[in-house]
């Protein structure tokens, strides 16, 4: 039957399946609210900081930074190829994201308690590159006809994208700070408990990524109801994470954990959603030269996964090192 409102055939089936899976993750997250918080440990009996805990948290952060870097690497490769590397600076995110990916892999496997000077330098450098990249993208949008118009926000250089690589660097940088915690001490960053700092950074990162997804899904007219997921689920995760990071040390984090896990899964299923979207475009995968570039960006959604992993690392830090 000719149908003018929803896709038909295999695409529809797969979309439904994926949606159900993501929905199940969401339900899991919601459900965990309903249960009373289990009395795991009382604040009075805070354990002595476990020297391995800091390293574990640091490696989790390396993994988060690496996931984010991978997303940026593939996404910026596709997008800057589309832009024909018109400007030599457009190779920067490829190089930096590849470096971030490399050092993050190294960090994830590194069980030593001390920061690594190369990792540390690369992460710090990448944070700055993110800021500079944002400046470049702002300039690109501003000089187009119409300036800061919807047209240029939709189709010009994406303002939020360079921040993702910056975030990857920042998370890595934080991981090095956590790693350098002397044995027996609570990890601190800039004089604040590390778990809280990482939690706030991850929460803000998720919020920014939601902004980017909202802009681009608005550009796509939210033509598919599943396009509302990344603008509804991660914000909740960001809020509960923020509450965990800023609130009293003893509050239940079980719900936060579930929301973050759901967000991490959402990031991965988003990739599958986008791949189906590419297949639905004119000519499908046979027309990949066009549809990879003009269709939904396949590598973009795992940015949520990376940030959710960072949030989970923050939760781990908060639980391992209650600060009051």
């Amino acid at each position: 039957m000719a149908n003018t409102t929803s896709p038909s055939g295999a695409a529809r089936t797969t979309l439904t399946l994926l949606g159900s899976l993501t929905g199940a993750a969401l339900l899991g997250a919601l459900h965990s609210h309903a249960r009373p918080p289990p009395a795991t440990r009382s604040p009075a009996k805070a354990p002595v900081p476990d020297p391995a805990a800091a390293n574990r948290a640091a490696r989790r952060l390396n993994r988060a930074a690496g996931t984010l870097a991978a997303s940026v690497l593939f996404d910026s490769t596709v997008e800057h190829y589309r832009g024909q590397f018109q400007n030599r600076a457009m190779y920067t995110p490829l190089v930096t994201a590849a470096m971030a990916l490399g050092v993050s892999a190294h960090g994830t496997m590194d069980e030593r308690q001390t920061p690594h000077v190369v990792r540390d330098t690369v992460y710090a450098l990448i944070s700055i590159v993110g800021l500079v990249g944002t400046g470049f993208h702002l300039f690109n949008v501003r000089r187009k006809a119409g300036g800061f118009s919807w047209q240029n926000l939709f189709y010009g250089a994406p303002l939020g994208a360079p921040m993702a690589i910056g975030l990857s660097g920042l998370l890595g940088y934080l991981s090095e700070r956590v790693r350098e915690t002397p044995p027996g001490q609570v990890p601190m960053i800039w004089g604040l408990p590390a778990g809280r700092v990482v939690g706030v950074v991850s929460g803000l990162g998720i919020t920014g990524t939601v902004g980017e997804a909202a802009l681009l899904h608005f550009r796509g007219g939210f033509h598919d109801p599943f396009m509302y997921l990344p603008v509804t689920m991660p914000p909740v995760a960001a809020i509960v994470l923020g509450r965990s990071a800023l609130g009293p040390a003893g509050i239940a984090r079980r719900a936060t954990r579930w929301w973050l896990r759901a967000t991490a899964i959402l990031g991965l299923s988003g990739t599958a959603f986008h791949a189906i979207g590419v297949g639905r475009d004119m000519g499908g995968w046979r027309n990949w030269q066009q549809n990879i570039l003009n269709g939904p960006p396949i590598p973009a959604p795992p940015a949520f996964t990376g940030l959710a992993l960072a949030g989970l690392a923050a939760l781990g830090l908060l639980e391992d090192h209650p600060d009051d």
Partner: peptide, 12 residues
């Protein structure tokens, strides 16, 4: 058709 064009701006 089916392949159209991707790069819409001048000099692309």
């Amino acid at each position: 058709s089916p392949r159209g064009y991707v790069r819409m701006r001048n000099n692309r």
